[in-house]
Design a protein around this nucleic acid. Structure first.
Lengths: 207, 207
DNA sequence: TAAAATCTGTTGCAAAAGCAACTTAAAGCT
DNA sequence: AGCTTTAAGTTGCTTTTGCAACAGATTTTA
């Protein structure tokens, strides 16, 4: 999805090439980082998946974002505005690259090839992130649950080059992602089937 | 809002410093760029405001995004996915910096100070953009119109360091931004006043 | 300055969505 | 294998939202 093949290779070897870049492992439910204070920290998810979680003043938990392989995150990309506390929590076991924004600004040597690559590759990651955010906004601005679902399915269909595909996340998570009530979503899924617009078998969908 | 003061100065002088960067003027309703084909073009709005507009297969127009001073845009930041056509159209008279992604990758000389600054400043702009997108997602994921409005007002209140502020866009545009029906929004604004949660006088709001 | 266009404000009505409260099914864990 | 947790699927009821269709106010532009 727009991410170059050599990127993964680059990420794999990043730690070896620069002492300022750490590679860390996290187990399920461990806190990877917080967005409470500014640290100019940049994180790249090498493997696994993680959630950006908010606890508001009433103690309610909500998942703001789901990060997957090659996603770039950190408070650096998020305005620490309101009084709410943001955590990134491992959903599965994760491998994460962690470094500071300073790593970009200051090169090791005047012609360090590694740093040049870093800047270039992080650009790719950033564009990937933009694309994810814009896609989500696209879906969230759909007025009805029906349009949100069909928009989401249309994207999956294009990604899979097929009218048939499976939903890569749980339906519960999907409702969360689209910011709609799960039971209302189930109802809409049912009526889409009844109208013959989609076929559904478990998490397999055909348009 | 996180954008350094020297950024504007940098942008003002960008064209003078690098022949690969163009500064262009656009009048109201002129098309600044399209997101139809990949050109790896990056645009920075120096002054004015512009809309990212979509025309879908039925010819319906919708405004996806509003760009203001210091916003960075271009198909580079947007996945050209569906069959819909995207245009950036000047809402007022605009001044725009236009250059290609290649400008980042290839420096003029090995130690060109200008290019170094360009990379650094564009990072600032990108972070600003992330922040805008995340803020909008935050608001769009609020379930009710009431919560969307209060979330929006809370941000304005923080930005203005005051419980009293004015809404910087028209109410019609606000409804669009929050992706809600305008009349329903008006109704909610009214009930927020009746409940004593806000005071409203024209576009002036007090919490 | 008159006409056109846009924006604000309102309302009734129908449809959609949210909420709560379940049951059943599947997945994870010891 | 049995227990626990999480996810899927369903339903009735209530509230919220969207839609359509206005009138009045304000702004733009010819």
């Amino acid at each position: 999805m727009g991410i170059q093949n050599n990127l993964s290779e680059f990420i794999e070897n990043a730690e070896k090439n620069c002492k300022k870049i750490q590679k860390k492992e996290f187990k399920k439910d461990e806190i990877i980082t917080t967005y409470i204070e500014k640290r100019n920290q940049i994180c790249i998810l090498v493997s696994g998946s993680a959630d950006l979680v908010r606890y508001d003043s009433n103690g309610n938990k909500s998942i703001i974002e789901r990060f997957n392989k090659n996603d770039i995150f950190g408070e650096f990309f998020y305005t620490v505005s309101m009084n709410n506390e943001l955590f990134v929590k491992a959903k599965k076991s994760c491998t994460v690259l962690i470094f500071s924004y300073e790593v970009f600004k200051h090169k090791c040597t005047s012609n360090c090839k590694f740093h040049e690559n870093l800047v270039k590759n992080v650009y790719e990651l950033i564009l990937h992130r933009f694309s994810s955010l814009n896609t989500r906004i696209d879906l969230l601005t759909q007025r009805t649950i029906k349009d949100k679902l069909l928009g989401y399915f249309s994207i999956l269909s294009i990604e899979n080059h097929s009218k048939t595909f499976s939903i890569p996340i749980s339906l519960t998570d999907l409702a969360d992602y689209l910011s709609i009530d799960r039971s209302a979503m189930m109802r809409t899924l049912k009526s889409l089937q009844e109208e013959g617009i989609i076929k559904k078998n478990g998490n397999k969908i055909s348009l």
